[in-house]
Design a protein around this nucleic acid. Structure first.
Length: 189
DNA sequence: GTCGCGATAGTCT
DNA sequence: GACTATCGCGACA
């Protein structure tokens, strides 16, 4: 079941915390619970790739809600976004990180290490095997799927300024989920 | 734990 | 030709 992607992209981003991303390539199945996302308001948002209108790179951002947008960052990393809003409106939620739920060994194999598997946008894509080949695919019935979910009890969410950008950096459109101190024992290392 | 820095290549101007 | 929605490593605390 795909989460509700209607309404303002900022609200959608916050609601996506706790949802699961699932990838399935042959026998390799991985899933991650989202704990860090950012909202981008397309052509209204100077920090968005879509601010200057459609280009070759960002065209799938203009597709309908539930489309996957994958782009290359710094020439070497892949980053994935969930496209929100209607066709022609380039709102999207950048998936920055999560905690491994399923397929940990597969992710460790892809990453070449056993820790810090999914705690950054580039790492998340590498661990889950997502590349530019999947740009524009459907999150409902493609190899990369989005499934509704909720955060564990005792987890809190907070809004902070976005990271790693130079324009409109002050908008509190980055959402992070984390255990409260009492639940910190559950926190992955 | 935090901070600084270099690598790297696709995309846009 | 410049820029980038990052990562991983080493230094230091």
């Amino acid at each position: 079941m795909i989460p509700d992607l209607t309404g303002d992209v900022v609200g959608v981003a916050e609601r996506l915390l706790g949802s699961r991303i699932i990838t399935e390539f042959g026998d390799d199945v991985t899933s991650v619970m989202l704990t860090e996302v950012e909202a981008y308001q397309g052509e209204l948002d100077p920090a968005s790739h879509a601010y200057n209108g459609p280009t070759r790179r960002n065209q799938s951002m203009f597709a309908a809600a539930g489309t996957l947008y994958v782009y290359r960052s710094y020439g070497i990393h892949w980053c994935m976004n969930v496209v929100v809003a209607t066709k022609g409106v380039a709102h999207a939620v950048l998936l920055r990180g999560g905690v491994p739920v399923q397929g940990v060994e597969t992710m460790a194999s892809r990453r070449g290490r056993v820790d810090h598997l999914t705690d950054g946008p580039g790492k998340l894509c590498q661990a889950m095997g997502v590349t530019g080949d999947h740009d524009g695919s459907s999150l409902t019935d493609g190899p990369v799927r989005l499934s509704a979910g909720t955060l564990p009890l005792g987890w809190i969410t907070e809004a902070t300024p976005r990271i790693g950008i130079t324009k409109a950096a002050g908008k509190p459109w980055r959402f992070i989920a984390r255990p409260t101190a009492r639940e910190a024992v559950l926190r992955p290392k």
